[in-house]
Simulated assay, not measured.
Amino acid sequence: MTDATAKPLLSVRGLTLDIPLASGILHAVRGIDFDVHRGETLCIVGESGSGKSLTLLAIMGLLEKNIKRSAERMDFDGIELTTASRRQMRALRGDRIAMIFQEPMTSLNPAYTIGDQLIEALQLHRNVSRETARKRAVELLEKVGITAAASRLGQYPHQLSGGLRQRVVIAMALMCEPELIIADEPTTALDVTIQAQILRLLVDLTKEMGVAMILITHDLGVVARVADKVGVMYAGELVETGPASDVFGTPLHPYTRGLLRCIPQPGKTERGAELGTIPGIVPSLVGKVEGCAFRTRCPHAIAACREAIPEQGTPPHEFRCIFADGARAAEGEAA
């Protein structure tokens, strides 16, 4: 259980990402706040294009040059990431903060063996011999469930299955014993059985090693199983955040409730019953964006939804909606 009074390992406040386009400024991420504590798993969920991956790339300092990043604070264990130099960020990446990308074949260099890449990951940040790095690589490959680990070091990425490649990427992320792992849909390219194994492996390793993790996923079933905290993202904003048990048990934002209606619930959803849907499409975030971005798809929207939306709720369970109870909308003029 995370100590709520402890200082967060990562604290983000007011993160905003703007992308200049020919048609105007795309407000891809808009003023999001969240904290992650040591040993805690934060899952960020939402539709494609909601800004989840860009948020994590902003933390890692891996944004494209044309993207403008601003934030009140992005504090990683006392290091302000918004003002950190390139040298500081290079020192952090792969050492204290590690990232697991969605597709392992794009994370691994096809021209180098698995062993060379694992060894380099450690020697880049630690003053250790190649033999010491090799022993660490074998140890971690065994820890992530790869058999005959020593012989795997001489293989190239294309000689491994998708599941084995993703396990190698996880081992690489753990080589320097990071304090924070950022995982961007790490099981998307895998079949369902392997997905479950990889996710369980990730969660078990983070708990065992006391590592914090931010996990992006579309799968609410995954979130329910592994998350300590949940952030629900829509159109560049975190519309609801809180402990997983609270967000799933008493969802307060209409978008969160809509997402949960779209998935079958064991013991509640009858076989053959229609699942819920969320009508409409995500609005454009190019140009001026006002009020609640979800109002064009929300069955409870009223004229006031065009105005500034307050953050409500009781920490740590908070949401952005004009309706204080978050559960039932008042009657009124459609926005």
Results as ranks from 00 to 15, higher is better:
A58N: 03
I19T: 04
V168N: 02
K207R: 15
S50L: 07
P254W: 01
D246H: 10
S85Y: 05
S50F: 04
P279D: 14
D116L: 03
G210C: 09
A91V: 08
A173C: 12
G154D: 15
A98K: 06
D219V: 08
P316L: 10
Q117K: 14
V282H: 00
I100H: 08
G94W: 09
E103F: 06
F101G: 10
L199E: 10
F248I: 06
A334S: 14
C321P: 03
A173F: 09
A91G: 13
L81M: 12
I278A: 03
K288R: 14
A189V: 08
A301H: 00
A111K: 15
T113Q: 08
A171I: 02
G46I: 08
A148D: 15
V192E: 00
V203Q: 11
T277H: 11
L174M: 13
S245D: 14
L180D: 02
G46F: 11
M1Y: 06
I322D: 01
G31N: 12
R96Y: 09
A6C: 05
L259H: 01
L202H: 03
E331F: 06
G326T: 09
N66W: 04
L202S: 06
D35Q: 12
E131R: 15
V203W: 05
A330G: 11
G51R: 03
T250C: 10
P8T: 07
T269N: 04
Q265P: 00
I25M: 14
T193Y: 01
Q102C: 10
A133H: 03
E139Q: 12
G14K: 00
L252W: 11
K207E: 13
R134A: 13
T193S: 13
Q117F: 12
E274M: 15
T106V: 11
P264G: 10
A133C: 04
T193Q: 02
T188C: 06
G272E: 05
V138K: 10
F248Q: 07
M175R: 05
Y112Q: 12
H317N: 10
R13E: 11
G115D: 03
G61H: 06
